[in-house]
């Protein structure tokens, strides 16, 4: 087996890297793929929380690097899905505890046993970013339709393009708010894609369910009804190679929106 190593990065913090990682990883595992997620955010680990695995961590990536345990011993199995594993970051150390070479080496070893290695990258463009990218050959750049996030994504794309090892990168636009886009108060997906001129792999709507799912330590892809969950599932299918159309987020949902639509239709006729 030779797995694909995908780094999930954004430049700016708080745009949803870790949430994206947890959900894509879970969705890929649900689709029958063997997945391992590596949290490289040393000192600020959170991926364990989103997966509800915080109480099961015995060894971290630093223990592996400093040879206090075998690589396999440090992999934490997911509660529900045996296909899914986590290699946690150390909470007490800083970014210098693991080098680019060591991360490359870990990725190489994991490639033999897993279909997908998802690397959760810390915010910023310093050493933490360089480490996370070191072992990857693909990247997903997470952004939101906000100026600061798009600007940082542009910077990250510039850095990724300069890396020979990165063969392809895709854009994931998170926290899309169709209502704001409709009222022209938010840049649309098309605007962001045009400005960054990058290929799109996913459009995730803003969803309050993300907050409750984080509270519970249960990725939202496990919630069949959630629109964000559906969108993340679609991203996973696109990664596998399926041709899945993007969700139509513009379509009004719920009774009130339908009534509004009905009346706006009448107004149109009056003209």
């Amino acid at each position: 087996m030779s797995g694909r190593v995908i780094v999930i990065t954004s430049g700016k913090g708080g745009v949803g890297k870790t949430t994206t990682n947890a959900n894509i990883g879970t969705a890929l595992a649900k689709a029958g793929k063997k997945v391992v997620m590596i949290d490289t955010d040393l000192g600020l680990r959170n991926l364990d929380l989103l997966l509800g695995l915080e109480n099961r961590i015995v060894y971290t990536i630093v223990d592996v690097v400093e040879e206090r345990c075998k690589l396999k011993q440090a992999l934490v199995k997911d509660k529900k899905n045996p296909n899914l594993c986590l290699l946690a970051a150390a909470q007490t150390r800083d970014k210098s505890a693991v080098t680019e070479e060591q991360l490359k080496d870990i990725c190489e070893k994991l490639k033999k046993d897993f279909d997908f290695i998802l690397v959760d990258c810390p915010a910023g463009i310093e050493q933490g970013f360089q480490n996370a990218v070191a072992g990857a050959s693909e990247a997903i750049v997470v952004t939101t339709p906000e100026m600061s996030a798009v600007r940082d994504a542009d910077r990250i794309i510039g850095l990724l393009e300069a890396k020979e090892e990165i063969k392809s990168y895709k854009l994931l636009i998170n926290r899309v708010r169709p209502n704001l886009i409709k009222s022209n108060d938010m840049m649309s997906v098309d605007d962001v894609v045009e400005i960054l001129s990058a290929d799109l792999i996913g459009i995730i709507p803003e969803d309050t369910g993300i907050i409750t799912s984080t509270n519970k330590g249960e990725p939202i892809v496990n919630d069949e009804k959630s629109l964000a969950g559906k969108a993340y599932n679609n991203v996973a299918r696109r990664i596998i190679g399926e041709d899945v159309p993007f969700l139509n987020l513009e379509e009004p949902q719920g009774v009130i929106a339908k009534i509004k639509k009905f009346f706006s239709g009448l107004k149109g006729k009056e003209k």
Partner: peptide, 21 residues
């Protein structure tokens, strides 16, 4: 009023990215 906010963002971003690049 509608045009302003989103278009302002887009135009400001274009200028700033050009400078960054």
């Amino acid at each position: 009023a509608e045009e302003s906010s989103k278009d302002t963002a887009r135009n400001r971003l274009r200028v700033v990215l050009m400078q960054d690049r």
